[in-house]
Structures are given as structure tokens and as C-alpha cells.
Design a protein around this nucleic acid. Structure first.
Length: 412
DNA sequence: TCTGGGGTCCTAGGACCC
DNA sequence: TCTGGGGTCCTAGGACCC
């Protein structure tokens, strides 16, 4: 028998925008949009003032300005968000050690064993909200429910600054008329498929014949039915106990489409350095390299991967492998986006190369990493990157970024 | 001046080995 | 110089999340 659990899901409201408004009081109460670096960027997050005017995540800057002419554009700074996120997660851990960061602005807390100390989940939620508000001036929405799926759903029900409880005995009632797309894991395509089966609400999904779902969706089918019933046994996985990192990758949309091979290679080297330095920071090497290209028309793209005989983490090795893939194809159009990722990872063993030349390369790489770690990425980099340095520093900040050190890497 | 970037998981089909 | 089946690794692509 599974013991009943009490799970909180905390979702920071308009996180990046809220942090910016706190850091710079002049931005408070105003419509602002946080964007990435680079020429062709989109809005990552916008303040509630901006949302009220119709500004949405994913809009191009000009689009945001069209619906909200007074929109203030703020270039995102990942370090601020990462730092704040880390501090907020420390607050969570004052209430339970079982805290799982889902993304930079969302966490689950299993407070089942903390109820005796703090009284109730509701009390914990109010105290957390108060502390975050007091320390950082920002609000969050909290959901309380018997599992992660429902806690996340609950936190979505009231924004901003909400607190929603789905008591175990209310689950069926809450889900009955809830549209299926509110469930985390059911996206656009799945909604379309389910709608075609005349399933629109969680209630309908939960009552659907399992065999019918399994025929259509394979092993996902059984899980879908349970989701519709609000059943989710997945545990809250605390810091340090997550799965190992499985891939390390970077991709970048170029400021202009390029077709000059030398320029493409230069960008590839830059990406290789970004991937390599991060892999080395995590202390992993990998033997599968994946190259991704999106063409100028935006819609056509391809990805190719290759698996090497040995594990690599040096930027130059990554570059050579990526170049090897690129050389097997004839580019059909100018390139809009390039991406490289390293997978099939293992923890790096500290092994000195046999040959003196290799050792020198290793030492050089280490020295470069040490400087970058201290003074920020891309301060020291390969000579051929220098003409394009303005690109190198332009980090777009994906909300999927986790505070440093959250992902653990363990021996395979 | 149209449309970002970081991930995970799943499936299908082919190669290869026992 | 036949046949079948299971396991593993690989590539490619899609769906989903933030």
C-alpha cells in the first residue's frame, strides 16, 4: 500500500521579468519583456503588465512592441536568475529535504514528513510565499495535492500569487470537466489525437477503455488513463539523486543566414567550445556527436549523429567530429541555425595521455577552462573565434536552465 | 527584421552477434 | 550457400517540457 503523500509545486510568477523588476525599481509596474542575446531573438518571459496587453512568450520583439508599444525590452542575464533560483531552493529545503527542481523557476516539495513539524501543507505554503516575497520581492503560485501531477496542475490554477489545494477526496471532482491539455505531458499533438477519439476532459480520459488507449499509443496508453484519473506515483527526486546528465548541447540562431563555408566552420568551432567547456565542467566525456542544421527558410532542417570509437570532451575533438558530419552533406540553403550536442556520456576518468603532444593540448585546455570558470565563459577562447566574439557572449536564457550543481553526474 | 535554446523520453528500423 | 529468434547498439525523427 502506498502511503498518502502531500506534495507542493511552487511556480515562480513571470520569474525572469520579476527578478528584473526587483533589481531595477524603475521597471516595476511596467510592461517589460526579457529577451535573449543575438539578433533574432524572442521574448522569453514578460511581466504581468505586458501580458495584460497581449505580449506572449515566443513572440519576436517587434511583435511584442506591436501589441504593446510601451513594452520595455530587457536583455536577460542568466546569472541573476540562476543565483535567485538557487537561493529560493534553499528556502524550500528549510521545510523538507525532498525538493526537486523541475526547471529554473519550478520545484516540487514532498512535505509528507514535515507536516508534524509545521502543522499543515497550507501553513508551509504560506510561509514559503512570505519568505520568497520578503527576500526577493517576487510572488509565486503554489499547488498542494497528493502527487506531482496534481500539484503542478494546482499551481497553474491561480496566477499570480496563488495557492490552490486539491484534497485527495476532491481529485475526481476537480478533474471531471478539466480539459486534458492542463495535464503536464499532454501536449498539442496528443490533445488532437485524443480529441479525435472524442476525449476532451480528464474525466473522459480516466474512464476510457485502457485497451483502446494502448492500441493507439502503445505503452503510453496506460499512463494516459492514470493521468486522467489523477494518479501519479512518481517520487520527488531530491538534489544530488537525479539521473546523470545524458547530453550536453548548444545551438544558436545566427544573426544572419550564412552560406560561406569558412564562416560556418568558425561558428561550429565556437559551438564546439561551448559544448566542450561545459562537458569538462561537468567532468564528462561523450562518444556520440549530433549536428543540427536549420536552413534559411526556417522549416527545413536536418540532424545527423555519429558515434565514435572513443570518448571525447576536448573542444577540438568535438569540432572535428562535427565537421566530419558536415562534410558528408551538401548544404541546400544558407544556414539559419547550427547546433551541436554530445551524448552517450561517461564520467571523465583522469587519465594522462600517452604522448607529450596530447598532454600539452590537455594542459592548454585546462588552463583555458580555469580562466573561463573564474571570469565568465568565452573570455579566453580559440584565436579563430575572436572576430565573432560578439556572438559568443550572447546567451539566450532558456527557462530549463537549472541552478549550478543541481544535476549530478555519477559513474556509469 | 517572423518565428530561441536547453533538455528527456519514446519508437522504428537496420546491422551485427550468438 | 538453410531458417528463426533474442539482445544490443546505432541512426533518425517526433513529442513534450521549461
Amino acid at each position: 500500500m502506498n502511503k498518502p503523500r502531500t506534495i507542493l509545486h511552487v511556480d515562480m510568477n513571470a520569474f525572469f521579468a520579476s527578478v528584473e523588476q526587483q533589481v531595477n525599481p524603475e521597471l516595476r509596474g511596467k510592461p517589460i519583456a526579457v529577451v535573449g542575446g543575438g539578433g533574432r531573438t524572442v521574448i522569453t518571459t514578460s511581466s504581468y503588465e505586458a501580458r495584460a496587453k497581449g505580449v506572449k512568450t515566443g513572440m519576436a520583439i517587434w511583435e511584442g512592441k506591436r501589441v504593446c508599444p510601451e513594452l520595455i525590452i530587457v536583455a536577460g542575464d542568466n546569472r541573476k536568475y540562476s543565483y535567485t533560483s538557487g537561493k529560493i531552493n534553499e528556502i524550500f529545503r528549510d521545510f523538507t529535504p525532498e525538493v526537486e527542481a523541475f526547471s529554473i523557476d519550478e520545484s516540487w516539495l514532498d512535505v509528507t514528513h514535515s507536516l508534524g513539524i509545521f502543522g499543515s501543507a497550507e501553513t508551509i505554503a504560506y510561509r514559503i510565499k512570505a519568505r520568497i516575497k520578503h527576500s526577493f520581492g517576487i510572488t509565486c503560485s503554489v499547488g498542494i495535492a497528493p502527487n506531482k501531477l496534481l500539484a503542478k496542475l494546482a499551481s497553474d490554477m491561480q496566477k499570480p500569487d496563488g495557492l490552490t489545494i486539491i484534497a485527495p477526496e476532491k481529485v475526481a471532482q476537480v478533474l471531471e470537466h478539466m480539459p486534458i491539455n492542463v495535464l503536464c505531458g499532454i501536449g498539442r499533438k496528443m490533445v488532437r489525437h485524443l480529441n479525435m477519439m472524442s476525449i476532451y476532459t480528464c474525466g473522459e480520459l480516466g474512464r476510457c477503455d485502457e485497451a483502446r488507449l494502448t492500441r493507439k499509443f502503445g505503452i503510453v496508453g496506460a499512463r494516459l488513463k492514470r493521468m486522467g484519473q489523477g494518479v501519479d506515483e512518481s517520487p520527488v527526486i531530491p538534489f544530488g539523486e537525479e539521473d546523470e546528465v545524458k547530453s550536453v548541447g548548444h545551438s544558436r540562431t545566427l544573426d544572419q543566414d550564412i552560406d560561406d563555408p569558412a564562416e560556418i566552420r568558425r561558428f561550429l568551432l565556437q559551438l564546439s567550445e561551448m559544448v566542450g567547456s561545459r562537458a569538462r565542467k561537468y567532468n564528462v566525456s561523450g562518444k556520440t556527436i549530433h549536428l543540427y542544421v536549420r536552413y534559411a527558410d526556417f522549416f527545413s532542417s536536418w540532424g545527423k549523429q555519429t558515434t565514435l570509437k572513443s570518448y571525447i570532451s576536448r573542444s577540438d575533438d568535438i569540432y572535428q567530429a562535427a565537421l566530419g558530419i558536415l562534410n558528408t552533406v551538401e548544404l541546400e540553403q544558407p544556414v539559419r541555425l547550427l547546433g551541436i550536442s554530445l551524448s552517450n556520456l561517461q564520467t571523465q576518468s583522469e587519465q594522462l595521455p600517452l604522448f607529450i603532444e596530447e598532454r600539452k593540448k590537455l594542459e592548454a585546455t585546462k588552463a583555458m577552462d580555469a580562466v573561463n570558470l573564474r571570469f565568465g565563459d568565452m573570455v579566453v577562447t580559440y584565436g579563430s573565434l575572436l572576430p565573432g566574439k560578439e556572438n559568443a557572449g550572447s546567451h539566450v536564457i532558456p527557462p530549463s536552465w537549472k541552478p549550478d550543481g543541481i544535476k549530478s553526474v555519477s559513474v556509469k
